[in-house]
Simulated scan of single mutants.
Amino acid sequence: MNTDELRWFAALAEREHMTSVARELHISQPALSRAIHRLEQQLGVALFDRRGRVLRLNHHGRRYLPYARHALEQLDAGAAALADVADAEHGEIRLWFSHTLGSWLVPALVGAYREEHPGVRFRLTQRGTVGLIDAFDDGAADLIVMGPRPAGRALGWHHLITEPVLLAVPPDHRLAARKSVKLHEIADDPFIAMRPGNALRRLADDLCHAAGFEPRIAFEGDEIATLRGLIAAGLGVGLVTTQRVAAEAVTTATPHLRVRDPGCERPLGLVWDPDRPATPVVAAFRAFVVEHGHRLAAAQAP
């Protein structure tokens, strides 16, 4: 059976008049009759009772009609979805991003794009850094905003901005009055850190190891706001991102010191899978971010 046969059957089931239905469908009456006959042969039952020129939907036809209508609805919905995807002004973009970027970078990119393209829809998903790029493997993500650049995979990458990573200390900490610090100076302090696997945690561990010590972890969390709150309460010190400090309008007096150790920063960018063809709407947004993303990101800097 094919789509036309299902549509013609549904139309004939509603009208039960071969001539008028053939006229409405702009086909010949013999063509309609042959199509219904082919459908009945494939199903193995008659769908109509025929008495001369009169057609009546029989009990087989009444039982089959809801399924035919449902199949047609699904086919039409699928065609509409594909047409929607192909429309650069009204399609959907599945954008994934790491936790620390949801309060400033992602809103800046999405907001600016929607001002110019209000019909585009975004399906946003926020995740920890661990396994974030796995969203490409199962086709769940079109684009990802994260940092640093994923290693070990041939993924597309466009650098947006590099944000400094600062050392947050309690207000009464011995280094609180300083503007900058070397990490070896806090080697004996308890650390408030992100959970293992997070990109910022990996950076913190690497920086501490390069400075010659193993950080003594007092708490592991999922949100930088939580880390900074515990640091302000005097539970330890920790590395946080400067952009996040600006975005969250910190009300505590927690000092944030510049770290003079090399590499105490985090590059952020847009990631995509070059092996998966981009739909027009995804390609258009990616091009927008490549052209304007650095400016939009820099405007969020403190």
Rank of each mutant, 00 (worst) to 15 (best):
H17K: 11
H17Y: 09
H17E: 02
M18N: 08
M18E: 11
M18I: 13
T19H: 08
T19E: 10
T19C: 01
T19P: 00
T19V: 12
S20T: 14
S20H: 04
V21C: 10
V21H: 07
V21K: 07
V21Y: 02
V21N: 03
V21W: 01
A22R: 09
A22G: 09
A22T: 08
R23E: 15
R23S: 12
R23D: 13
R23M: 07
R23P: 11
R23I: 00
R23K: 11
E24K: 05
E24C: 07
E24P: 00
E24I: 00
L25Y: 13
L25K: 15
L25I: 12
L25W: 13
H26N: 07
H26W: 09
I27G: 04
I27V: 13
I27R: 15
I27K: 12
I27Y: 05
S28D: 10
Q29F: 03
Q29D: 12
Q29W: 08
P30H: 03
P30V: 03
A31K: 12
A31T: 11
L32Y: 05
L32E: 09
S33D: 03
S33Q: 11
R34G: 05
R34C: 07
R34N: 14
R34T: 14
R34L: 12
R34V: 13
A35G: 08
A35Y: 04
A35H: 07
I36L: 13
I36A: 08
I36E: 01
I36M: 12
H37N: 14
R38C: 11
R38F: 14
R38Q: 14
R38D: 15
R38Y: 10
L39T: 09
L39N: 12
L39A: 09
L39H: 10
L39S: 09
L39V: 05
E40W: 01
E40L: 01
E40N: 02
E40C: 01
E40P: 03
E40M: 00
E40Q: 05
Q41E: 09
Q41N: 03
Q42S: 10
Q42R: 11
L43C: 08
L43F: 06
L43V: 03
L43K: 08
G44C: 02
G44N: 03
G44Y: 07
G44P: 09
V45F: 01
V45K: 00
V45G: 01
V45Q: 00
A46L: 06
A46Q: 11
A46S: 14
A46E: 10
A46W: 02
A46K: 09
A46N: 02
F48E: 06
F48S: 09
F48A: 05
F48I: 05
F48Q: 06
D49I: 00
D49K: 01
D49Q: 10
D49H: 04
R50W: 06
R50Q: 09
R50M: 04
R50H: 08
R50T: 00
R51F: 14
R51S: 13
R51I: 14
R51C: 14
R51A: 15
R51V: 15
G52F: 08
R53G: 11
R53Y: 11
R53T: 14
R53V: 14
R53H: 14
R53Q: 13
V54K: 11
V54Y: 03
V54W: 03
V54D: 06
L55V: 00
R56V: 12
R56C: 06
R56S: 15
R56A: 13
R56W: 02
